[in-house]
Design a protein around this nucleic acid. Structure first.
Lengths: 345, 345
DNA sequence: AGTAGCACTCTCGAATTGAGAGTGCTAATT
DNA sequence: AATTAGCACTCTCAATTCGAGAGTGCTACT
């Protein structure tokens, strides 16, 4: 793979960097002038020709400048990935914002989405941390009226689910409280998978509620659960490649259909370690709607306990140099926050 | 105001209806042919000229067809408002979807947003029902680790707020439970405004928690709280008037900046009764970003107990004939649901 | 290996043009 | 008095043409 000469590398990087800024095809002459290179345009042309041959560049028309291919971007990214660091000033600003905010998962997610979108000028997406194996922590039953009961279910790791249940007949708050107390004792700390195999409670009310709890836990712990936060949707609309709004529409549709988005996030990150991140370029053949886009995706959280996914979507020529470190840094912060919350449990 | 002859009325309505379908300026000849009118184009021209004079129509260029002005749309809408009814078939489909869904506020909101967006081909927006005067119902304190405590706060009407508190020093679950029990007894059923004037509890922990509860209730009951659900953001991008994506971007930005959106919803509905709805045409001079758009907005819920807002945004030439009845119908359904939940309290 | 020069290709924007649609006005008609 | 036919005029829009500019590949020279 790496048959590139040093000069070719340097050239490729320059071309891509320039294209990312200008959004235009890059020609040999322009390149030489712009960067005061020590070679003549003709030499550059030969090299560019070679790079085109190898599949890193592409000509939109017979006689226009070159534009990076997906391969080209991939090469570029592989060069950027390891060393990129966010400027300290930016790090401080971001970390400050987090420690400023209210200690509340919802706030954190919103904030993270906002920061990512802002920094990268792309569309950000982030899922709340999700326990890999849910363990029961606490249940609370609160009568609202007649047969309707508000159930608040807390899982280890801080996940909370609330739901209105409708019972067969009215039950007093007192009886509900007793049931809750018994169930709490019975289930304390159990992993979800083990609950079902438990000895059944004798009280019929307890039994009913237990069934409902099980249903709810299942749903909460399924991958389909958990809110997805996004921000910066309008950023991407200003990019020139989406001028004919049709392309943009298709890309944004992914963000509206949460189920597709969830699938995408899940599938691309199953084999990504915490701390490592993935760059998805041009939909990777899998997602037709993202043919013109790239995504930078990372996981965060505490492996084996609770993890979430976050990422940024942008045009294929997004500023990877900025986006990659930002995503990595925010993932780091969130991991710390989740860690604080889960640790010592 | 109503100096329009019958014929002028009819013509104006035809022109607007046609323009809503075609998105193009309407000329006299075209109108006659399309609708087999008994007059000649010349007559129509005279009438159109009159309507233009009166401010209901407008010519984009000296020699092009007419296009409705905001005034024109307002007139049109005032004709549509009272009688419009959703076809029974559609009513059934919608109502079915609601009764099918899980009895959960979050589900309802998502569903309502989806239905509105789908039916109207616009962007839908809806806020969860919000108690006008919050009354305390129940608090639950669950220790998670060390000094961190999960507080689940339930208000009358089913509003739930959860938050992580950080205490000055670690406290056992047992002590937390006792505090919760005492506070529940103390505060049961109290309106928020009265809580602060209460005798203070003796236990210092109780006191601390009470302060935190107050903070939280305040925030929850402020207008700034409550999630906003939207759907159909991409619908509006396909409309021809947003071809130059700049206009679209500005309009969509409103939906990203939740605070502006909230303000808009709040301000336009303060004097709207449940069941009545408001049509905002061209931003009404107030919202520059919506100059090209219209919104149909309604309130729902139980006045004095809990109310929410829902609406649809579309281009100024959106299909009012479809959107208005849909918004009204969905508002009705949600009012019923809220009513069921709140009633008998 | 690197460079200069050259002929060639292709895009893009500006300028031009003609068809089509619509208008307002006036004079004739009912 | 209301309606209509006719006409001259205006303006947009799409198609066309055209030249400048940028870029290329190739060949011959250093």
């Amino acid at each position: 793979m790496n048959e590139l000469t040093e000069r070719q590398k340097k050239l490729l990087l320059l071309i891509i960097r320039d294209h990312i800024e200008s959004a235009e095809p890059i020609g040999s002459k322009r390149l030489v002038e712009h960067y005061h290179l020590d070679y003549s345009p003709a030499t550059i042309r030969n090299e560019m020709s070679a790079l085109t041959e190898m599949g890193y560049l592409r000509q939109p028309h017979t006689s226009a400048g070159r534009v990076p291919t997906e391969e080209g971007y991939r090469y570029f990214v592989s060069q950027m990935m390891p060393n990129a660091e966010l400027p300290e000033a930016v790090q401080h600003t971001i970390s400050h914002q987090f420690h400023q905010s209210r200690a509340d998962m919802d706030q954190w997610m919103t904030l993270a989405a906002s920061i990512l979108a802002h920094q990268s000028q792309g569309v950000s997406v982030i899922t709340a941390p999700h326990a890999d194996q849910s363990r029961f922590k606490h249940v609370e039953l609160i009568s609202t009226q007649g047969r309707q009961v508000l159930m608040v279910l807390v899982l280890v790791g801080g996940e909370v689910s609330q739901q209105i249940l409708t019972l067969a007949e009215p039950v007093t708050q007192e009886r509900l409280s007793q049931t809750a107390t018994r169930l709490n004792a019975l289930l304390a700390g159990l992993a979800v998978d083990n609950i079902s195999s438990l000895a059944t409670p004798t009280d019929p009310l307890d039994q009913d509620i237990l069934t409902l709890i099980l249903q709810d836990v299942r749903r909460t712990s399924e991958s389909s659960s958990g809110e997805i936060y996004t921000d910066g949707l309008t950023n991407v609309l200003s990019e020139p490649e989406f001028a004919e709004s049709d392309e943009a529409r298709r890309a944004l549709k992914i963000f509206e259909e949460r189920s597709t988005l969830r699938d995408l996030l899940a599938r691309t990150t199953t084999n990504t370690n915490i701390g490592g991140l993935q760059v998805l370029i041009g939909g990777e053949g899998e997602w037709e709607e993202l043919r013109q886009c790239s995504m930078v995706i990372a996981r965060y959280g505490v492996p084996g306990m609770a993890t979430g996914t976050l990422g940024v979507l942008g045009p294929m020529r997004m500023s990877y140099t900025k986006t990659i470190p930002t995503v990595r840094y925010v993932a780091g912060i969130l991991s710390d926050l989740v860690n604080d919350r889960v640790a010592g449990e």
